[in-house]
Structures are given as structure tokens and as C-alpha cells.
Design a protein around this nucleic acid. Sequence first.
DNA 1: TGCTAAACTGAAAGTGCTTTCAGAAAACAC
DNA 2: GTGTTTTCTGAAAGCACTTTCAGTTTAGCA
Lengths: 336, 336
Amino acid sequence: MPSRKKSPTIYDVAKLSGVSISTISRVLNAPDKVNSETHKRVMNAIDQLGFVPRAEARARALQNTDRIGVLTPFFTAPSFVQRLRGVASALSKANYELVIYPVDSMDHLQGYISSIPLMRNIDGLIIMSLSLGDQDAQRLFNNGMETVLIEYSHPDLNSILIDDQHGGRLVAEHLVGKGHKIVAFLGDIEPPERFAIHPVKSRLAGFVQGLSEAGLSLPKAYIRSCPYTQNESRQAALELLTLPKPPTAIFAGSDFQALSVMKVARQLNIKIPDDLAVVGFDDIDVADHVDLTTIRQHLDESGRLAAEILLARISEHDRPLQHINLPLNLIERMTG
Amino acid sequence: MPSRKKSPTIYDVAKLSGVSISTISRVLNAPDKVNSETHKRVMNAIDQLGFVPRAEARARALQNTDRIGVLTPFFTAPSFVQRLRGVASALSKANYELVIYPVDSMDHLQGYISSIPLMRNIDGLIIMSLSLGDQDAQRLFNNGMETVLIEYSHPDLNSILIDDQHGGRLVAEHLVGKGHKIVAFLGDIEPPERFAIHPVKSRLAGFVQGLSEAGLSLPKAYIRSCPYTQNESRQAALELLTLPKPPTAIFAGSDFQALSVMKVARQLNIKIPDDLAVVGFDDIDVADHVDLTTIRQHLDESGRLAAEILLARISEHDRPLQHINLPLNLIERMTG
DNA sequence: TGCTAAACTGAAAGTGCTTTCAGAAAACAC
DNA sequence: GTGTTTTCTGAAAGCACTTTCAGTTTAGCA
């Protein structure tokens, strides 16, 4: 039988220690303003009863929840996880809780956006890789919900961006520098999800631009659009590598898809990097593991930064908005 | 200037629609008990004002929060992420929020355990791969905090386990069946974290047992204990593969470490699976990507199941406790 | 028309804490 | 011994809902 004795309230402590509830509260929230004798007596009572202030009640009175929310699609994809890791590390230092709202449909997103700012059950919001209508942004702003956008921007909200196009160009320059003449691209250029943003297109655009600046072109046949999934990526890689004139380098729109390319290459007995160079994008943990050359976009850091900006704004509402552009670097490993 | 007009309360709605606040509440929580005419008027006012009940206030009055917490170490390691994915998928169906408490020290764990059940800011708790003192388990139980343990068990709380030792034996049987005579093990057998549980030891034990049943032994030199990190794993793999009589098969305690083994093998130009078989444990997403033979422990499913059990117990407190044992299967792919 | 049952309503109490504010007690100076 | 600070204290008013319960309407029926 669960001895579900309801936990003690501030009143119980007050009764036991013979003072009023406000004194208890003061002992907890402003200890220096309480007689040290009383303080001791109250603390004894608290220990004796095992009293812990109820979080919801506290939040109600305090108007803050010590909780921040993260709105994210694909929340278990490696790149998102790493952002989340950054967020979590910054938050746990500051004793904030992390609430995750996984978004996997437009409805989902709309539902969250319309209720979150009003429910007031979080102090701040981080929105990852989701495109936000102007209305929604306004709504967040008008309701005074502190928000940081990652991979998207809006003039009224903080944002952290990377220059995907520039990243694409970096890859082009790198491959050109290595002497490649026939290159290919593989990535999720036409994703079906309307709620998420799609940086891969920009990566390709930058790639094409970088190539053309070096006098190289990227014919249609050397661009494969394929979803993030493993099978489709492998299929696309296979098609690229079995072209009459196969590419000597492939740029994959994400590290995960680069893995697929590497796998197919192994199956075809194509040597990496001798016969084929592979470059990814993101620099997820696994990239290091498999020695993948890739564009590092400081995923952990973007999350940490987002959290820090948010916390700063929460404690000082009138701090200026920040629009940060995170740098990209090419990390050269073994694959190209 | 953020037009921080404070959002409307139930009182505003009451005033506008000319009824009392309780009627508003009833319209929201028991619509069928309200005159349809009134109902319409109230809904109009709600829409007009854009009213949304404040979550904290609601939680206070209702005594439930529609929020469940997950206590987890290493929360961004792939296997934990996949469990989390399972949890999230089950929760979002039921409209519950997911709060993550990352644990990275004993103090952290103690802090959470001692305040969470009393703060009452979650309705239920999932504890992943953390060893729970009897006191703490009692505390959760006594305070009526519904809890599901994963990878750990306690008679008073729900639990989901896998039989790591059996998993180890499966690997042994598989490798023996393939005719391997000299095998090795690599894994994090002596982890420093006191707060987390360490299933790898059991995996090794089962492995050894399975081997010895087939008349094979596993000499000390063929067992490398090394932390989860990449560098250390690679070092250990290197040592194993450069033994005078190198093993023809390596069982890694986790998929992530199996990746390191594969990498080193490639560097040494050792062909997988011809010259070396590699078997991992967990079956994380990447395992499929790199075609790693491994033990599947249904990570997503364990999370989903935990969430479902929790939700069931929350809605019916007197449902019996569940102690579930999840099956393991060997998934044979290309590496062994 | 009068009576009863059914359907609905709103005042008020409860939820557990923070914080303000007026006033009491103690300490100090003269 | 009075006046003035300084330091504490506790009653009470929020905070924004839900829910109970007594009371009022309305409808139905003979």
C-alpha cells in the first residue's frame, strides 16, 4: 500500500516552527533578512518534515518557471541532438529545466506556437530549423516570449544562422584545389516537410557557384536529390557512381548521407579517397569516427549560444536582440 | 517597444461574455453541461480575446501537469537518444510534455531525486540507466511518484530490463558458429561514473560464458577495457589487432566502439569480414548505416514502452507494477 | 395551475507559494 | 526616559485557475 501521505506544505513548516508562513518563505528566499535564531529553527523544521516548495505553486507566484522549451523537428537526428546537447549544457549550469517539443507536422507546429506563448509554462523558447510565419513571430514577440531562432531569422527575434551557401562554396573550393574535374552532389533538395527549413538547397547553390567560379559546371546528371533516408541515399549514390563518367568527388548535403555514399563506394570497391573523395556537411560526432571530411558548423556551440542568449534576455529583458552568424570551416580528414 | 499587453485571464472572458468565471471553466472542461447558447457566447469571447488558460495555474488547481520527466546520463549518446525518441513518440500522442534532466554527476542525481518527487512539477518519471539507492526508490514510491526504470530494477517501481549477459552469449554463439577460434573483447568495463549502471560487464560475462561452453577461452590479453571515447577505443583496438596472434573476431561492448574497431581495421588494411569479424551491441541507427553486425536491444521500443507504462499508471494508479524483460536478437549484417 | 425533476449557474473555497506593508520589538543615542 | 532608527515579523492580498454546492430556471407532467 503506497503510504501516499501528502507532502508537507509551507503551512506545516510554519506550524511546527511556530512562525508565520511568510517567515518560512523569507528564510528560503532572503535568508539574510531573518534572525539567525529563527532561521535555525525554521531550517530544523524544514529538515524534519522534508519540506520542498511545490514548483507549480512557486511558478504561479513568481511568474517564472525556470524552464525553457525547445521546439525542434527530427529531434533525434544527430545534428539536432548535438544542438540539444549544447542547449542542455548551458541550461543545467543555470539550473533551468529543458522541455522538448518535438514537431513533426505543420499542425503540431501551429499548435505549439499558438499556445506556448500564452500558457506561460516556459520562460523562453528556442526554435530550431523551423520556418516561422510572420504572424507567429509577431505573436511570440507581442506576448513577450523570449525566443531564439536557430537556422532561421526574423527581425523581432534573436537568431543564430550559418551561411549554408558559403559552406557549399568552401567545399567547391576544396575539391577544385585537389584537382577534381568531375564532381557530383547528393542531398535532400526537395524535402516534403513544409514546416522545417531546408538549408541543403543553399549548400548546393553555393557549391555550384564555387564550381563555376573555377570554370567547372555541375550537369543535372551529377545532382541527385534524395531524401534523408538510408535506402534512398544509397540508391542515389549508386546511380552517381555507376554513371558512364563517374565523379571523382561527391559532396553530400549532410554527413549522414555522406555515410551512405561511403558505404556504396566500399561495396563497389571504389577506394576512398584515391578513386573518390567524399565531403559531408555538419560535422556530427560520427564524422570524426569514420574520418569524414566535412564542413563543421559548430552544432554544440550553436545550441549553447542559443541558450546563453536566451538566459541573458530573460534576466534582462531590454538587452538588444542578437543576430549571430556562426562561422563554418572545412575539416579535412581522410575522405577527401 | 514590445507591446507587452498581458494576456487575458478567465476573468476577462467572464466579463466580456457576461457570465461568471466558473461558467467559462465549465465551457472549457465540461462543455456538455453548459447551455449551448451560453456556450457559443463564451466561445466567441474566448476567440475574440485570444484567451488561453495559463498552464501553471491550471496545473495548480488540477494537481497534474501533463508533463513527464526523463532522468538520464549521457543524454546525447546515440543509444540514449533512441530511447528518448521512443519516449517522445509515445508522449506526443498523449499530449504530454517531455522534460529532460541530464545527469552527469552523483550530486546531480541526488539533487534531482530528492526534489523531483516533492516539487510535483511532473506527473511521472522515467529513469534511464541510473542505479538507484534503495532509499531513493523508497522515496519515489512513498511520495507516490509514478516511475519507470530502464536498465535497472527495484521491486517497488516499474522496470524494463534487457538480459545483457544473454546478449553476450548470443555473440559468442554466433562467432563460434562462424568458426572463429581466436576472439577478443573491447569495451568500457571499468567506467568511473558511480551514478550510472554498467551493463557492459554483464555483456562480457555472457560472452566469456558462451565461449567457454564451446570450449574456447578468452585470455586476459584479448580483453581490453577502455572508456567510451573515440581515441581510447581506437588505441585499444589497435593493441588487439597488433597482438602476435591477432583475433579473427572482436566483440565490442557498444556499437560506437565497434565503429572504432572498424576504423582501425581499415587503417591496418585488415579486411572486414574476411580477416576480421566485428560485432557490436545496441543496434543504434548508425549500425545499419555502416552494416555492422550487432545485438539489437530495441532502444526505441524500450522508450516507447516505458512511456506507455507510465501513462497507464498515471491514469490508473492501482494498476499492477510491471517488470518487463525485453528480448535481444543478433542482427547479422556485413561485418561478421 | 401547481408540483417535481432536470438542467444550469455563480459565489466561494481551495491550490501553495511570494511579497507588500504596517506595525512591533529591540537597539541606540541623547 | 524619551525619541529615533533599525531590524523583524505576520496578516493579507495576490497569482489564475478548478470544483463544489446551494440555489435558480426551465421543462415536463398531471
